[in-house]
């Protein structure tokens, strides 16, 4: 039995996960908590957010995120892929910034519009 705090929504339910019973979850306020509890003990993943440099834009950085969650163990490796990225304005929300991170089938995408500098 492992105790976890669900991080799927800000309510933060206190979950109990029973490894012996195929990761059955109790204490969850909704079904998403059950899914999270199982995944957290079998294959924990996170969405990663950061920023990259922008040239010629109204502002100097554009925020980005992974288009889906990636394994926790790959976070730092994925972050390094952003070190040498420079975008040219305009940047549009949803633009792909890094394609297929570490072969995971997940992209880094822009989360902000950056218009050109006027």
């Amino acid at each position: 039995m492992t105790e976890l705090i669900c991080i799927v929504c800000p309510k933060g339910c206190h979950l109990k996960v029973d490894e012996e019973k195929d990761f059955a979850v109790t204490g969850n306020g909704c079904p998403r908590g059950a899914e999270y509890g199982k995944k957290e003990l079998t294959n924990p993943t996170r969405v990663i957010t950061s920023t990259v440099r922008v040239e010629g834009g109204a502002i100097r950085r554009a925020s980005v995120k992974t288009s889906s969650d990636i394994p926790k163990g790959k976070i730092f490796e994925a972050m390094r892929l952003l070190d040498n990225v420079t975008l040219q304005a305009p940047v549009h929300m949803g633009d792909i910034v890094v394609h297929d991170i570490l072969g995971l089938g997940v992209d880094f995408v822009a989360t902000k519009n950056v218009p050109p500098r006027t």
Partner: peptide, 25 residues
């Protein structure tokens, strides 16, 4: 929200998890 680049916004209102800039956007 422009500087809150992390995700965790909008679960109640949009029923999906957005970053700060996306929520404002």
């Amino acid at each position: 929200l422009n500087q809150c680049i992390h995700n965790g916004f909008g679960l109640h209102y949009f029923k999906e998890e957005l970053t700060g800039p996306e929520y404002a956007g």
